[in-house]
Design a protein around this nucleic acid. Sequence first.
DNA 1: GATGAATGAGAGTTCATTCAT
DNA 2: CATGAATGAACTCTCATTCAT
Lengths: 195, 195, 195, 195
Amino acid sequence: MTVKKSEGKREQILRAAEKVFAEKGFQDATIADIVGRAKVSEATLYEYYSSKEDLLFRIPGDLTSEQKKEIEFVFDHIRGAANKMRAFIYHNLWFWQTHPDYASVALVILKQNRKFINTESYRIIYDTYQMMLPVIEEGIESGEFKAGTNPKLVLSMILSIIEYITVNKILHGTPENLLEYVDPITDQILGGIRA
Amino acid sequence: MTVKKSEGKREQILRAAEKVFAEKGFQDATIADIVGRAKVSEATLYEYYSSKEDLLFRIPGDLTSEQKKEIEFVFDHIRGAANKMRAFIYHNLWFWQTHPDYASVALVILKQNRKFINTESYRIIYDTYQMMLPVIEEGIESGEFKAGTNPKLVLSMILSIIEYITVNKILHGTPENLLEYVDPITDQILGGIRA
Amino acid sequence: MTVKKSEGKREQILRAAEKVFAEKGFQDATIADIVGRAKVSEATLYEYYSSKEDLLFRIPGDLTSEQKKEIEFVFDHIRGAANKMRAFIYHNLWFWQTHPDYASVALVILKQNRKFINTESYRIIYDTYQMMLPVIEEGIESGEFKAGTNPKLVLSMILSIIEYITVNKILHGTPENLLEYVDPITDQILGGIRA
Amino acid sequence: MTVKKSEGKREQILRAAEKVFAEKGFQDATIADIVGRAKVSEATLYEYYSSKEDLLFRIPGDLTSEQKKEIEFVFDHIRGAANKMRAFIYHNLWFWQTHPDYASVALVILKQNRKFINTESYRIIYDTYQMMLPVIEEGIESGEFKAGTNPKLVLSMILSIIEYITVNKILHGTPENLLEYVDPITDQILGGIRA
DNA sequence: GATGAATGAGAGTTCATTCAT
DNA sequence: CATGAATGAACTCTCATTCAT
């Protein structure tokens, strides 16, 4: 597997873009800002990325599949739907908390970009989230969760509250530790569905 | 009741802006787009609004205080914390569903505008949402809800799932009826807190 | 002699324009500024004056011929070229000092307007200044001034220093009394030409 | 000696701006006029200068300190206050005559720009002019000039007449040779102060 | 005579992108 | 492989002027 050009420089540009997009938003971030932070020339940036939007869409990169693998790993090693749900919530909050720039880009910028929905990255993220659905279904089958539970709605509620508190932290700059929410959220969700 | 200039034209411009902002986002929307839709000249737009951002911030306008009054009215005429919560969820989903352009502007554009947070409109919206807190607290006191319930978290979960499904509908253009979610959401939330 | 429209309003607009032009310069002054100060509508302004430039050129108005008459009167009642010169310098400094807005307009704005040179007002001002020339010539003939004195240069020096200190006062906002310069200037000029 | 970007182009733009400002004045000159004359694009102009006003303020550039050095050189090599004064007048008239566009910009546009007063260029010009003061004072002390001579007034008269005839030539486009005024002006000034 | 309302025409400025070296 | 330099295309906003009433 050969790679052209310097992968170091490619990564350097991507990390600079992530930072700048996170700080200023997509439109207010300029190519000049990004190359300034990446210490390369504007022309060089265009050697690696075909456009500003291309750069944006490549930010999720390998993180998405890594996250998918991690969730898969966790689900493989934990028993019980409720436990898996708690782990899922934990993992997501931990992930956003430890990747604040990426969180800004993913949850604020990419979230509302209609073109992003057609990218591979989006599909992987989507698939990752969908992995919760069979977990909930199995919980229902096993009797751990109430019959009548709507798995999609429960997943939506989990994802929405995770996003909500993450974005709130980003936008308002509060210093709170998101992991403190793991148990309250999990318990509240479970409270509504536990058999 | 005297009005300066043509209130009709003022409103016409505002509705055009709402539509265009909803379709393209704030940055991608141009003044040319807005005046094209409003059938006025660019200069005329600036007779009524001092800048593109001014136009954006005036979109919530009276809707916010109307919404607040409606929620107050509802809370005054309904007994029981759980019933009030269901009505709150209903009212909000109904409101976003019947004002889809405003929903786009409010939930996608204004949501992440740091300057908007300092406007009167934001304060009213914030106050409206906060009206749920005493309802939950009273529910706890009356024994209708479990002791140990965290009112703020419950409110966050309500607001987050409402936003989540509204924004999803907007961004993915799905034709679903948001009101179908009123009972599932309410029941799921209540399930976690009902005594 | 009939006049159309209200002469009061015409004058009101002109005085407002003089003030605004003096404060902001021609380009930075807006019609909105002027009608705001004059308490009339923009359309009304255009009933009286055909354009912003027309308004500017009409500011000198009757002041120029009044000034001419006053200089003529002074020259008729004073004997001696040196005395007339001192009176001329006095009168000009006094005039600019007592008409600071007009001074700004005339010496800063109109001075450098190539079109103004072709107006009647400019001709009257020019004629007024030229009235000093025969005075100097008579001074030479009568032996009061040195033979070989260049009347035009002397007049230029008089006018230039008057303008110079007037404009300096205007631009730098110094509170000095221009009349204190009458004797020093006159004596310095005379020193170079007195026989 | 390294230079960023093409100094040739930077100078080319500056000379075009000088010409256009001289011909039309600051406000009537457009960026389009300037780039048209400089044969570069508007965007290129903004690569070199941050704004139209920046461009204006950079026109004096090195000329001001060169002029100062030249006056210093002249004062160092000429003996006698009267001789120095004549040289000062000569040098200034020669300078404006040989730099007519700069004269327009400096004496008509920059002269009345309040912000320009706070620039380094203004300070240098001011200092250059102030160099005449000690010359006059020394003339008084040595007995070459009359006791009681007011150095500041004399300098004002020198500067004012130089400006006056220079600006008159610029605005009226007369073809006269300004150097013909050196002796008449010097003699007239000296006439009023020579002991 | 007076004006509220509307606008055409243009201004200065920005920035993602490209090309010659 | 890297980049300095250049720009086309757009943007928001301004304002003198006009017209219908």
